[in-house]
Design a protein around this nucleic acid. Structure first.
Lengths: 138, 138
DNA sequence: AATAGTTTGCAATACCATTGCGCTATAGTT
DNA sequence: AACTATAGCGCAATGGTATTGCAAACTATT
């Protein structure tokens, strides 16, 4: 099990330190994207900055992607397998529930092509749908 | 001229105070969305909080909409005429230039319909395209 | 074991958003 | 015109998030 997690890190060219194993393990257990504060609470007592840097490293190496859902805190979620360091190509839609404030990836929903006016060059697209998720709707 | 600005406010049910006239006048002169800090610099010396509340009021009354472009600071831009208090329906795409860091509305580009999985209810959609704008591209 | 490089934890900093509160200005009433 | 109620303003203060510097701890390599 731990073997597996460790391998996930090494495969992404990330030194599998104790901290990072913990963080990845925690990420694997999440059903939605989590913020740094969530992570800090979940791994208490841990240094927030260290967790921050672990996430940054993961992001840089293509293991997680960050999501700005407008809640004020950046959230992080594991990438699909096919992400590479530097270049994320998990351009899927993210959903933010206004009720439970959870953010989840909708990997099935790709972001539609947007054709911009002449002279504009697209480098990245961010699509956040906000509303009520299936757990909160009655 | 000032008459005109004043009317814009009263039509939106906003008391046309001196401060608010200044803020709206400044907004009208912008070619892209501006942050609170931009506004503060442009109207120096003015109290940041007062400007903040002016923007909030404008937003609440459907005169401007706010944009979270991921830069960390919320930006504001005037709405198209057809916005109502409370319910903004200017669901257009916003473009953030990674070079000049300016955010502009692309009102011609409507956000495509996203069909979510069963049980999800959409209330709002946010689409930010990031890249290089026509002024910065060579 | 010594060394070089990496990681960690603490401290500190910089923004941004937001609220409380007292003073002032304005509008509405008598 | 005087009074009162309401709205707006400016200052102070708070809370949250992101980010960097630095020194100690740790890891891997020779």
């Amino acid at each position: 099990m731990t073997e597996n997690i460790e391998e996930m890190l090494t495969r992404k060219d990330i030194n599998p330190t104790a901290m990072r194993l913990l963080v990845l393990d925690f990420l694997l257990k999440q059903s939605s994207a989590i913020s740094l504060t969530d992570l800090e609470k979940g791994l208490d007592p841990s240094d927030r900055i260290t967790l921050y840097r672990a996430l940054k490293k993961f992001e840089e190496k293509g293991l997680v992607h960050s999501i700005d859902d407008g809640s004020g805190a950046t959230k992080y979620a594991l990438c699909e397998n096919d992400c590479e360091a530097g270049h994320h190509h998990d351009l899927h839609v993210h959903f933010f529930c206004n009720t439970c404030r959870e953010t989840s990836c909708l990997p099935k929903h790709h972001i539609p092509q947007i054709t911009l006016p002449d002279g504009f060059k697209t480098e990245e697209v961010n699509l956040i749908v906000k509303g009520v998720c299936n757990k909160c709707v009655q």
